[in-house]
């Protein structure tokens, strides 16, 4: 089925139609935590994109060699290796970004987008398609993080990419840059996408469907158990 999709479609679907965090609702933790300013959001997006592209390429090459039963741990090790590399690069060349992203750089390892793409796309497709998928999803992730970061920075601090705007910076609404604002701006961004696509986009939801671990924990069984647990 994937064969029919053109190279261009693979590249572009991650940007809007299947945008990983606004439509598929994956990777919520870094989305909320690192968008307190546009620069942090962009930095997080680019770091995750680098890891995503590299891990997609390596995993699509290794997919046939890895036994099915231990594939998730193998994927995690590959991803963790690249995350450590990114961590070194950031620490050496952009220490200020390294400090402000802090804990969330090592946590790229458990970002559902990366593991999810490894599991759903890279393990079933060839190297070129997987790399394109990584680039597209990475751009989509970076774009939405940057936009959300810019909005939160603009309202919360009155600056944009660090430049103070005349009236806005004297009347900042701090709350938008703090934790509750993160949830609220993310909600508005998803609602805006819903409004524009009139609900026609691929609808994500916060349950097992979007979870990268679904195939490992036997999604249906898991969902059924949850439902049953709720009824009992």
């Amino acid at each position: 089925m994937e064969k029919k999709i053109s190279k261009l479609a693979i590249l572009t679907k991650g940007i809007i139609k299947e945008n990983p965090n606004l439509v598929l609702l994956l990777g919520t933790c870094p989305t909320l935590a690192t968008t307190s300013s546009a620069l942090n959001g962009a930095g997080m997006g680019v770091s995750a994109m680098a890891v995503l592209i590299c891990s997609n390429i390596v995993i699509s090459l290794l997919a046939k060699l890895i036994p099915d039963k231990v594939r998730i741990p193998c994927y995690i090790v590959v991803i963790a290796g690249f995350v450590t590399l990114v961590q070194f690069v950031l620490q050496a060349f952009v220490p200020s970004l390294y400090d402000s992203l802090g804990l969330f750089i090592p946590l790229i390892v458990v970002n559902c987008i990366i593991l999810g793409r490894a599991e759903m796309f890279a393990s079933k497709n060839n190297v070129i398609d997987s790399a394109l998928d990584g680039i597209g999803m990475g751009i989509g992730f970076t774009l939405s993080l940057t936009v959300m970061g810019a909005v939160r920075e603009l309202i919360g601090a009155g600056t944009i990419f660090g430049f103070a705007l005349p009236w806005m910076s004297e009347h900042p609404m701090m709350i938008i840059a703090l934790a509750p604002g993160g949830f609220f701006v993310y909600a508005c961004a998803i609602a805006a996408i819903n409004f524009i696509t009139k609900g026609k986009g691929v609808k994500g939801s916060f349950d097992c469907h979007g979870c990268a671990m679904a195939s490992m924990c036997q999604q249906e069984k898991c969902l059924a158990e949850l439902e049953k647990g709720a009824e009992a």
């Binding site: 609702l25 949830f183 609220f184 993310y186 909600a187 508005c188 998803i190 609602a191 805006a192 819903n194 409004f195 609900g199 609808k203 994500g204 939801s205 916060f206």
Partner: peptide, 11 residues
């Protein structure tokens, strides 16, 4: 309508 589902959960 646009807020139904996941957005209202986030709010």
């Amino acid at each position: 309508k646009a807020f139904q589902g996941s957005p209202i959960v986030l709010v």
